[in-house]
Amino acid sequence: MKLPESLIESRVWRSIVRHGIRATNRNRVMAVMESLVLHLHPARVRRRSLEASRTYFLGAISLILFAILTATGLLLMLYYHPSVPQAYDDMKELQFTVSNGMFLRNLHRWPAHAMVIVVFLHMLRVFYHRAYRPPREFNWVIGVVLLLLTLLLSYTGYLLPWDQLAFWAVSVGTNMVKAMPLLGPPIRFLLLGGNVVGENALLRFYVLHCVMLPLAIMFLVALHLWRVRKDGGLAGAGRTGRSERGEA
């Protein structure tokens, strides 16, 4: 028996990967069924769903961007203090002393902008493909909430570098909130932890950006994907045959 084979047949290997690795359809089904990650997928998918014109992969790209942002964001958290003026100095440290610091920061900022665009495009695709129609009404609502959360996530992150750009962008934004009758000022106060954009606001935005909003997004994304499967997988373009596609 050759070494690789004996390895694969070993008890240790089998305790981790229960099926073999040979490219049989059984093993392929098992790969999906046995895997936690791949469990989101069915064992088989419709060939037409894989076509780019069905989805333009926009939902997938949104999720990938979110994953990239989570990874780089976690690394950035190692170098960041949400305090004044340390927050700004940390940006300088990233640029000048942290290995690949600037690359890391870029790889957080550009995907963040991209995610806003991609999520919006994803929403447009779903709309034009009529994929919000029954039974997917609620998933559409979740999607709208996810879009809003994405905007909020980007907006809260915008303040963290604590430079002029960040400060005034957030000041302008929160001043818009103030215009809301009755509820505006209290909401703004709650958001900023005070009446001005200061260290309290920085801390709140930091916690929102790094903990609360990502958790909310993760939960809703899970729900979103779960509903996609429960509602019959990817919805196709609505125009073909003028009807909903469905498995039921």
């Binding site: 791949l38 997928h41 069915p42 064992a43 998918v45 909903e244």
Partner: peptide, 19 residues
């Protein structure tokens, strides 16, 4: 309005095609 259409779509394995 939605009518149930016959699902004649060909399916493929998730692994490797989708993965």
């Amino acid at each position: 309005a939605a009518r149930v259409l016959v699902d004649r779509d060909e399916t493929v394995m998730t692994v490797p095609h989708l993965l």
